[in-house]
Design a protein around this nucleic acid. Structure first.
Lengths: 218, 218
DNA sequence: CAAAATAAAATTGTTGAACAATGTTGACGG
DNA sequence: CCGTCAACATTGTTCAACAATTTTATTTTG
């Protein structure tokens, strides 16, 4: 998927660590020891630290002076902020999209993947496909920088998902909503699609905030 | 302005370099020698390289493998992309703003600075004040992440400004437009303000693209 | 003389070790 | 039980070294 071979080592490292982070290999709040990771990944401390800076800038890690780096624990405020961003990026992108945009095909493909995964109860893949769906929505806007920013924000959101432990509740209900959204766009009704998307985002935000609040209470 | 004393050295370095970059201390396309900057700034290569990574991720520097880092030369495509982003962030932020938002006061203050600077023909400060004005617009949206992203994008845009050499043409005409925009917002007419802003952005984009095209031809 | 091939120099990429500064742990005494 | 202080571990930063690559200079060749 990546032609990582050409990339400098710290970036490869950062990509590898990011995969682990959004894949749930580490738990939020966990401290990442330089020594331990250097040994495990077989790179020097300097190289690892450069990768840490990258991921810190993306919001996936937090750096506390003289104490080390920690996996970000998404706060309620962070989730609220992320959903505000999502509404501001995704809804206009969809509202102004034209149905033949290549990203629309990616939206459709993501929905089909999600349906198939749901049928075999593979909630992990349902979540991934859902993310591809929304990434494609932002790509409708045809802005390299916007897409890059969205990738960053959604990676941070994934961290929040791993705080919760009911992936079915988290992703399953949204497959059909995505289906409806892409269908509306394909029918040339982008405004209606955007309205559905906003409903989706509000509902999703509430679900996650509620789950997060329950977790904080416990 | 910054409490840089507490920040780790690479970040302080990055801030310092960023100031230089958006202040025009380097010219786009210029190569930054590690050795030379290490000597000049009195830091080690490792530390400098960490700062480079940060700025590369922000789009201010470009990293070519085994060849070093170069000051980004903004392309026509980059400028178009940046203005697309600006329209998508600034216009909705302004349209949904309420006039008593603290950021509105910052908009007003920026306009006053710009007027004063224009009177004494200090185009550099006019440009800075103009940037503060638009930063404040994004802050109306109350999103930490959005503001951070905008800071990054506008830093990149500043690079493009330094490619041009007529700061008066670039900034002077917009002081009055900004004045009109904040006045509309203060009068409780955010929709009209947003419409004016869109006009502003379109006009500004055309000016810069034209200047950039002239420069490319020469 | 021009162009290609080659050798030399300079630069970046990565590592490892060193030491200072800061944080953490645990024993000790009140 | 709580605070103090020393021992320990970890991070922050620098330095030196070497491999890999690019740039420059030189030589060879047509």
């Amino acid at each position: 998927m990546d032609q990582d071979l050409a990339l400098p080592l710290p970036q490869k490292l950062a990509n590898q660590l990011r995969e682990g982070l959004i894949g749930g290999a580490f738990t939020p709040g966990q401290r990442l020891s330089e020594q331990a990771l250097c040994d495990e990944l077989d790179v020097s401390r300097n190289t690892l630290r450069e990768a840490f800076r990258l991921l810190t800038k993306e919001g996936l890690l937090e750096h506390k002076a003289n104490r080390g780096v920690f996996v970000t624990t998404p706060s309620i405020a962070a989730v609220i902020d992320i959903y505000r961003v999502r509404r501001m990026l995704e809804c206009p992108a969809l509202a102004h999209a034209y149905p033949n945009h290549p990203a629309a095909a990616r939206m459709r493909a993501a929905v089909q993947s999600a349906r198939a995964a749901r049928q075999r109860l593979d909630w992990r893949e349902v979540g991934s496909a859902n993310m591809r769906f929304h990434t494609a929505i932002v790509e409708l806007a045809d802005s390299e920088r916007l897409s890059g920013f969205y990738a960053q924000v959604s990676a941070e959101l994934r961290l929040a998902f791993f705080l919760l432990d009911d992936p079915e509740l988290l992703h399953a209900p949204y497959v059909d909503m995505n289906e409806a959204i892409i269908s509306l766009l394909e029918q040339g009704r982008p405004a209606a699609a955007a309205a559905s998307l906003e409903t989706y985002l509000n509902q999703s935000e509430r679900t996650i905030l509620a789950a997060l609040a329950r977790r904080a209470a416990a």
